[in-house]
Design a protein around this nucleic acid. Sequence first.
RNA 1: UGUCCUGUGGUGUAACUGGCAACACGUCUGAUUUUGGUUCAGAAGAGUCCAGGUUCGAGCCCUGGCGGGACAACCA
Length: 567
Amino acid sequence: MAENNTENKEGKKSLNFIESFIEQDIKEGKNGGKVHTRFPPEPNGYLHIGHAKSICLNFGIAENYHGLCNLRFDDTNPVKEDTEYVDSIKEDVKWLGFNWAGEPHFASDYFDQLYEFAVKLIKKGKAYVCEQSPEQMREYKGSPTEPGKESPWRNRLVEENLDLFLRMKNGEFEDGKYLLRAKIDMASPNMHMRDPILYRIKHAEHHRTGNKWCIYPMYDFAHGQSDFFEGITHSLCTLEFEVHRPLYNWFLDQLTEDDYRPRQIEFARLNLTYTIMSKRKLLQLVQEKRVSGWDDPRMPTISGLRRRGYTPESIRNFSEKIGVAKRDGFINVALLEHSIREDLNKRANRVMGVLDPLKLVITNYDAIADEYVNAVNNPEDESKGTRKVPFSNELYIEREDFMENPPKKFFRLSPGIEVRLRYAYFVKCNSVVKDAEGNITEIHCTYDPESKGGKSPDGRKVKATLHWVSAKHAINTEVRLYERLFNIEDPSGDKSGKDFLEFLNEDSLEVISNAKLEPVILEAKAGEQFQFERKGYYCVDKDSTSNNPVFNRTVTLKDSWEKVKGQ
RNA sequence: UGUCCUGUGGUGUAACUGGCAACACGUCUGAUUUUGGUUCAGAAGAGUCCAGGUUCGAGCCCUGGCGGGACAACCA
């Protein structure tokens, strides 16, 4: 699967630990040698790049082993969940390029089966109705280092348990009055085995089952069984569920006598530098309007990355590059950025765009001439063809491409220096116009008519090629420049107790309202990606209108001048 | 002073039943270049958390330490 895996001496691809488990299971003929995975989000928020890792893993493994992967919504807590999230999750999974097996599944599809299973446990004497308050529960639960104590309701008669559980279901009691708990071991070193809660009373409307139920199963009582009901063979989840595994298996033991059983395997969740992955915190950013929404291009959500200009391929490639293991670490965002540059370099058409315009006047060029120059759309892909770019005596160039008193290694435009205007002509700077404060307002140049197309007939060289836009043809454009959302690598991991919001980067968004672009961009559709030559990759935002085109910067180009300049 | 998981270049991931620690990103050279991009060529950077042990040979096996993480929601 992972493309960065080296091949061993026999030319066999090395496997990640999950693939090794799976191949072992197949070899042993477990579950008939089948592989069936699932991606099981709770519909309580938008998917983020961490989910993308899980999606690529689950769907990728199913594909590799000729199996299937389900999409299942883990919707056992009605107060947090919503169909808005269901819809966005489906959209995001599809956008990433994956197809789930059949229709999407829901844990709520199994509420009846789960209820029956709970009744069965009661009858077997393995579950009981408990009346402890949350406080009492906590007290009786003990701590990781001390055993718990048994609930006084633990030895209720089966008949009584059955009766109470039925009445819980029938809505006879208010929230919190009773609980159904498994009878396992209050002294277990594993807290999750200390008589975990199976059902709680919650008079809440569920986004799918409406008011049919007022008792809802807990995660642990729903997840493994859902896997079982769907015929899942390998249930991949993140590391924090490792301690749940004995309970996952305990339920399976109660549920089945034959030898089919899903296997839970845990892997490390993705951490990315300079961002956060917690759904709760992302929700907070949205609710407090620190960002414009779940799809704000600065968000690590799939919808945010999409709006930012990331392609599904780039995210899938990223996911392969990071691999999968059990140790938790931090992936540098540089790797994500590399993935999108790599992809867009091949697919994005080039266009010239000036973000910080400075007027350049060609004093010896005919002001009324109507000239077009030929430009290559994508040097990496000849099939993308060429286009005509209007040229005139008044142009915009990038303000940072001119320096009146340049340092040694600056080889762009400065007085007396000749440079090439990309695809057009050589120009030489003769003078500079300034306003009353001494700010440069215009650069005056002369051009060499012999250098049309950017080639010098006498073979003389220039050290720089600048992008430009003809002033009278320029399309005035809004461009949104994004920087990382946080100032430190791990905003959530601060040991001094600072809130993650304190590390928000106040300059993460810069809006330019007077960028100048070539006329071709008027034909661009929302979401379309371009490389603005020498500046980076940009895409058309959904806010874009024909009167007011709006572009998002996906990522800058690698900029080695930036390093030189810094010295 | 519990249980479980986990320690490999700056970062992430590899190394099949023990056999010269590899790949990617990042960094640094140089070449090419009508993008200070791309591409190409090359370099630096770890001796595998520590200490013992087994072995001809240990990142891999054993013992003992140390570091990091998870677990005490009627959340998932």
